[in-house]
């Protein structure tokens, strides 16, 4: 009901001829899935960042405890973050005490600006801080170019850095945080909601959308193997459906990454070079993934560089 009212308000505001002079149009909440009690997920679209999607391409969400709310990835842009915040306020008035950033990629964290006024604790993998210095400006430029400087948003400097494990308490609801070895990136953080056995994986897990490698292919396979033992029955992937069964849903990703390793090792052992690998490795998986052609060549390049030094 509240959602319908909000939509109506937004629609009326959009029709007003003097809207440029009136108060800003309130951010419109998302249609979100409550994948476990109190755990809400907005599904990202399988597209690249563009003004039409406001870089809302990743799965983002929040968890509500008895005393506070934690945001799990604040979104891909200012607008994406503002809409996520509006979605939270549709559900609860509890304070937003934590904003957890699963890794530095812009589609997951550039909505952080929308939560600045809540003064939450921004949480990230310890290695994300170095990556901010390294790549922050580059990401800002790329996203500003895609969406416009005002719309792009920004990441937040993390306050709580996790180098191994940590937990945060939302009041009767504990989230276990785990900093991973280099896998999808060198700063992947996973979150286990103990109460519901739900594992929030960020981009450690891609479903349907082709995985993007920005870390270590062997490391990613090792980390996912270890994650299979986590006591969870369901998981939220960084891209794909809002919820999948765990650990079964990781099998296609393991098959894709494992296939790349096999293909590239075979090319290297026959004296082949990186261009040959880009043209052929992983192609058997082409029909299985969205955006395959946009990322496979890059994944192969990155994996080749890693595997030629085995």
């Amino acid at each position: 009901m509240r959602r319908r009212e909000a939509l109506l308000v937004a629609a009326i505001a959009a029709l007003r001829p003097d809207r440029a002079l009136s108060a800003p149009v309130p951010a419109q909440p998302f249609a979100m899935a409550e994948v476990a009690p109190g755990l809400h997920v907005r599904q990202g679209v399988h597209e690249e960042a563009a003004p039409e999607n406001q870089d809302g391409i990743a799965n983002i969400g929040f968890v509500i405890g008895k005393e506070a709310v934690a945001v799990l990835d604040p979104g891909g842009s200012r607008a994406d973050g503002e809409r996520l915040r509006a979605s939270i306020r549709e559900q609860t008035d509890l304070p937003i005490r934590y904003v957890v950033m699963t890794h530095l990629h812009p589609d997951h964290v550039f909505g952080a600006v929308a939560f600045a006024d809540d003064r939450p604790v921004f949480v990230a993998h310890a290695r994300m801080a170095a990556m901010l210095v390294q790549r922050g400006e580059f990401y800002r430029n790329v996203l500003a170019d895609a969406l416009g400087i005002e719309e792009a948003g920004d990441y937040a400097k993390p306050d709580l850095l996790v180098s191994d494990t940590a937990s945060i308490d939302l009041g009767g609801r504990r989230l276990q945080l785990r900093a991973h070895s280099t896998a999808h990136t060198d700063n992947d953080l996973s979150i286990l909601d103990e109460q519901t056995g739900t594992l929030w994986l960020g981009d450690l897990l891609f479903v349907d959308r082709v995985p993007a490698l920005d870390g270590s292919i062997l490391g990613w396979l090792r980390e996912t193997k270890a994650l299979r033992d986590v006591p969870a029955t369901r998981a939220v992937p960084g891209h794909g459906p809002t919820v999948v069964s765990w650990p079964g849903a990781v099998a296609p990703q393991e098959r894709y990454l494992g296939g790349l390793v096999r293909d590239i090792r075979a090319i290297i052992s026959h004296g082949g070079d990186i261009e040959k690998a880009v043209a052929t490795a992983g192609q058997a998986e082409r029909a299985n993934w969205a955006l395959f052609d946009d990322y496979n060549g890059r994944n192969v390049t990155s994996a080749f560089k890693e595997l030629e030094w085995e």
């Binding site: 597209e47 690249e48 790549r135």
Partner: peptide, 20 residues
């Protein structure tokens, strides 16, 4: 509107940044 890649990032782009 052209789709804009590279926001998933890495330090690589598949579409023209404005400063190029």
């Amino acid at each position: 509107m052209r789709a804009i890649a590279a926001v998933l990032g890495l330090a690589l782009c598949t579409a023209a940044p404005a400063w190029a």
